[in-house]
């Protein structure tokens, strides 16, 4: 299975060529949810930001492997 088969691109998820009002509304709700998810991720990452700052001050290397999803090898 290729990446193209497995994942819908951002365009495929959210861009509509021809759509009536209700389809566009549904898309807007999905996109808002996606953006809200991003905000929540960012807000919860305050711990990451302060941890990284501390590591830098202490001269320690900060590894980002912890953010790599399971199976992230493509």
């Amino acid at each position: 299975m290729t990446m193209a088969d497995k994942y819908k691109t951002f365009a495929e998820q959210f861009y509509l060529e021809e759509a009536g009002f209700f389809r566009r509304l549904k898309r807007d709700m999905r996109l808002l949810f996606y953006l809200l998810n991003t905000i929540v991720m960012w807000a919860r990452a305050g711990k990451v930001r302060s941890e990284f700052r501390r590591f830098r001050e202490e001269g320690r290397r900060y590894y980002v492997d912890r953010f790599t999803p399971p199976g992230g090898k493509l």
């Binding site: 991720m41 960012w42 930001r49 980002v64 492997d65 912890r66 953010f67 999803p69 199976g71 992230g72």
Partner: peptide, 22 residues
């Protein structure tokens, strides 16, 4: 391209997003 979770550099990409200011 963070919607493709299996890209090799997703970890760094997520860190970049998290490290940005509000």
């Amino acid at each position: 391209a963070t919607w493709i979770r299996e890209l090799p550099w997703t970890g760094m990409n997520d860190f970049f997003l998290m490290n940005n200011s509000w």
